[in-house]
Design a protein around this nucleic acid. Structure first.
Lengths: 133, 133
DNA sequence: CAGGATCCATGTAGATACTG
DNA sequence: CAGTATCTACATGGATCCTG
């Protein structure tokens, strides 16, 4: 495949654009981004919104996002401590494609569930044999 | 959480729409879908396009996609054997959101790389200490 | 409040060898 | 050609405990 004309190409295993797609599939990253879409949120608020994530994992997620320039981390030197996370411009620009994907996902849930059901039934029949039903 | 009014919600850990997002981030799934965007492709062709995937992993990916109703698997009873994979209508409908995401990813690669560089430099400085530079 | 450190469970990818 | 079976390696997520 000739990819010399392209600045980036997901089909190239060495291309960083690959990791971006995987960032979207990250269990928490895309959720965090969407939560931050409404404005800055502090750590504890973030935890409440995604509900069941441990601080370690949330921190990991946030650091990765920060490193990639998608969010900023602002420390308020106060008592009690307060740290706000906010989308950067680049992070905000991801909101739209992400929203489309989320809408696709949410709207196709029933169809996918049906497909799975049908598939699993076929598999069961096959395992039981043609005379098993 | 009361989600009775919603058909689906990515913020609910129990909602299947979550796994869809992760399917997008799957190392091979989204690539396969995009390859199949041009029409049916057989197993060996698929392997060549994504190049480095082992048959086991590719099969796994394809089965999952098939189970979710995103692709179909057609066996041609011939010698040599031939199996074609093809997008379903639903699978094809994922092409658009996926393409947008891919474009976002590919176009933002430089900015992200820069952000990482900057971030890593800051970290190094912090580790060395204020008098270390 | 906002994490860091440590240990553990799991899932997913890959290597390798074999089959219809 | 198109897979399946088995084993291994590593990344990711989570539980628990501790700190500025």
């Amino acid at each position: 495949m000739d990819t010399s004309k392209l600045p980036a190409n997901v089909f190239d295993p060495n291309c960083p654009s690959r990791v971006i797609l995987q960032r979207i599939g990250d269990k928490w990253a895309s959720l965090v981004i969407q939560v931050l879409g409404d404005g800055p949120v502090r750590f504890s608020e973030l935890r409440k919104m995604v509900n069941v994530v441990t601080p370690k994992v949330l921190t990991q997620t946030l650091r990765t996002l920060e490193r990639d320039g998608l969010i900023t981390r602002t420390i308020h030197a106060q008592v009690p401590p307060r740290v706000d996370y906010e989308l950067t411009e680049m992070g905000a620009s991801l909101l739209e494609p992400l929203r489309m994907l989320r809408e696709w996902a949410e709207s196709h849930v029933p169809a996918i569930l049906e497909a799975r059901d049908a598939y699993d039934e076929e598999q069961d029949k096959a395992v039981l044999g043609p005379a098993g039903g």
